[in-house]
């Protein structure tokens, strides 16, 4: 296991370097003069020159990348033009909101998605299976922003049950925080629950066709026990690998959800950065999210190896 862990940790290093290279490249794929684009059409020559110097765009590209890596090592992601302060500081302030939203949606997704998938597989080709899979299919088909708006119309405007936007930190009022995040988390979870239910159903059906399940059935083990004791444990192992994908999907969805519900998270920061052409903010936010994903995928790999020791020998 130790060898496997070290191999996986070492394997993450080149990916992290590549991730930082891609985030660095973002400013260099801007067509034409990046400093001119960032400064906007009305900028003076002095303002453009100042941006060029601040971002180091006047230096050779290799030097720019080495300086970027050196700054990264000190968690210096540069200065935000729109906020007038460090990007790292802005990210640290906003990341908890995104993480809390993602976590909340995951808390809804994992039990509901797995349960729905299991029931659908158990009731294969019966009405419950069709009903669950239709809802799951709708979940993965309806746009997240449309579901959010429909949710606001129903739960905030008509029923007046939940707030239509805004964020209350948990340190201020936990209940109000949960209320402020419930509608966004539900809108975010709809796609993920659909995805997980579909994957769990497919995995369970595959497992129910295995020889050991047939043997258990032939021995006269009840169908509930077959599903609960034999199939469930084996369904969980492949489902764990899906968690990385689901977190990735959740973070994608968070960009839209935070904008609609006015949540001061990382996704909203990216969108604001784009509208104000604040590239250090976009680069920094993307980099932090990607590094977070590398870390989550690493954890998922290790958990998978722990649950299924055969993986270590691959």
């Amino acid at each position: 296991m130790l060898i496997y862990v070290s191999r996986r940790l070492l394997g993450a290093v080149p990916v992290l370097i590549m991730v930082s290279l891609l985030a660095f490249a973002l400013i260099h794929i801007i067509p034409g003069d990046a400093a001119q684009v960032i400064a906007g059409p009305d900028a003076t020559a002095d303002q453009i020159a100042s941006i060029r110097a601040t971002l180091g765009l006047d230096r050779p590209i290799l030097e720019q990348f080495l300086v970027w890596l050196g700054n990264l090592a000190r968690f210096d992601l540069g200065m935000s033009f729109m906020l007038g302060r460090s990007v790292a500081q802005a990210i640290v302030e906003r990341l908890p909101v995104t993480l809390l939203l993602t976590l909340y949606s995951m808390v809804l997704t994992v039990p509901l998605g797995i349960l729905a998938g299991l029931i659908a597989a158990y009731k294969h080709n019966r009405w419950a299976d069709t009903a669950i899979m239709t809802v799951a299919l709708l979940g993965v088909s309806l746009p997240t922003f449309w579901l959010s708006i429909a949710g606001i119309l129903l739960f905030s405007v008509h029923l007046n049950w939940l707030p239509s936007g805004g964020y209350v930190p948990p340190t201020e009022d936990l209940l109000a925080c949960i209320r402020s995040l419930t509608l966004p988390a539900l809108a975010l979870a709809a796609f993920q629950i659909g995805l997980l239910a579909r994957m769990t159903r497919a995995t369970t059906l595959e497992i129910l066709r295995q020889d050991y399940v047939r043997t258990a059935r032939a021995k006269g083990v009840s169908e509930n026990k077959v599903l609960g004791r034999h199939a469930f444990a084996n369904v969980l192992v492949p489902v764990v690998t899906v968690i990385g994908i689901i977190v990735n999907v959740a973070l994608s969805g968070a960009v839209v959800i935070e904008e609609i519900f006015s949540l001061p998270g990382l996704g909203r920061l990216v969108v604001q950065g784009i509208l104000r052409r604040d590239y250090p903010v976009i680069q920094g936010s993307l980099l932090v999210v990607a590094m977070l994903m590398v870390f989550i995928n690493l954890m998922v790999d290790l958990l998978y190896a722990y649950l299924d020791p055969r993986v270590e020998n691959d």
Partner: peptide
């Protein structure tokens, strides 16, 4: 792998 680390929409 590095590209996949970025959430696709972001």
């Amino acid at each position: 792998d590095a590209l996949m680390a970025f959430p696709s929409l972001m």
